[in-house]
Simulated assay, not measured.
Amino acid sequence: MARRVFLHCGTAKSGTTYLQDLWWRHRDALRDRGLLLPGEALRDHFHAAALVKGMDVIVDDLDPADRDVWRRLVAETRAWDGDVLISHEHFSDSTADAAAAALADLAAAADEVHLVVTVRDLGRVLPSAWQQRVKQGARQPYRKFLATVRRGDDDQKFWRYQDVVGILDRWAADLPGERVHLVVVPPPGADRDELWLRTASVLGVDVGGLDTDPRLPNDSLSIVEAELLRRVNTVIPRERRSVALTRLTKGAFARDLLAGSAPKEPFVLPAKHAGWVRERSEEMVAALREGQYDVVGELTDLLPADPRSGRTPDQASDGELLAVATTVVARMIEQEP
């Protein structure tokens, strides 16, 4: 039986890709130091989260072995006598009943169950979340996305992954506060590996000597690149949008062809939206202070910075979009044998 099991359930766009890349890259070293990542790859944790939350679009395509992955992760946890880490941001979008059932499974496999939630300020999350949605096929312009989030429309999809208080209500209701760990993403300008070190302190694992250079490329898009991809999405019939197409768009197209075809510009939060984002952030920080959770970092870092000057994607000119499209086509031609 494991000593402790840590379930890291997000939030999305809070450095999860960076952390998961390092955890799986150093899986053998971490195991030698007492921390087990059960399963064979991050894919197993993704499938486990899909099963726990009932993500039909993924579950329906799983083969019989993958449909058993959550049970296998729990069994590996029970067979390990040290600490265990299971991580995927899709866990955050689980119902209260699904979360309770998952925690009950883990409680039967470990002496202690801990919840880890990484949190980033909304001022940085919102532009990042819009860009991620565009990579997944979204057609909604940036400013309309912000207005939708503000109203809570779109079936609350954004808030299901970003309402930290709501996530804790579902996942941490029956856990002691000291076993609920909020890891605050450091503000801009902090050392690159600070988030890695903060999570390591929660997990109680020695990460000294482990390489922290990102292995996965930083495939964030410029405002012109992201706007071009959004417009491409508008001409792809919805019935042709599939999981396979989304993977192709996020991977080979966005990462290998589109990224780097236009100068980088910071994504800005329009002044029109700064007020409600600040208010929502202040409410979140106040609620988290009352929760008596284990906070690593400063909750004040969850308050957004003052609005910066700059453009938004809808301000990209037709000439800029044409230049990026031309570069992308040229890269496609160059890749042909």
Score class of each variant (00 low, 15 high):
A2L: 08
A2M: 03
A12Y: 04
S14T: 13
Q20Y: 13
D21K: 08
L22K: 02
R25E: 11
R27Y: 08
A29R: 06
L30E: 08
D32Q: 15
L37N: 08
R43E: 12
F46H: 03
I58N: 10
L62M: 14
L62W: 04
D63I: 04
A65F: 02
D68F: 05
W70Y: 15
R71C: 09
R72P: 04
E76I: 08
W80G: 02
L85W: 05
I86H: 04
H90D: 01
S94F: 00
A96E: 05
D97F: 02
A99M: 06
A101Y: 06
A109M: 12
H114Q: 10
H114M: 00
L115C: 04
G123E: 13
P127K: 06
S128P: 14
S128W: 09
A129M: 14
Q132E: 15
K135V: 08
R139N: 12
R139V: 14
P141L: 07
F145M: 07
L146Q: 04
R151C: 07
W159V: 06
R160K: 13
V164S: 06
G166W: 11
G166N: 09
A172I: 00
L175K: 01
V183A: 01
V183S: 00
P188H: 06
A190S: 15
R192T: 14
D193N: 07
L197C: 05
L197A: 02
T199L: 10
A200W: 06
S201W: 03
L203M: 00
G204K: 12
L210W: 01
D211P: 06
T212F: 08
T212R: 14
L216V: 12
P217I: 05
D219Q: 13
L221R: 05
A226Q: 03
A226K: 05
L228H: 00
V232N: 01
V232K: 05
N233H: 11
T234R: 15
V243D: 11
A244W: 11
L245Q: 11
D256T: 09
D256G: 04
G260N: 11
P263G: 12
K264H: 13
K272A: 15
H273Q: 13
H273W: 10
G275L: 11
E282V: 06
V285T: 03
L288N: 00
R289E: 15
T300R: 12
G310V: 10
P313L: 00
Q315N: 08
L321D: 05
V329Q: 08
A330I: 11
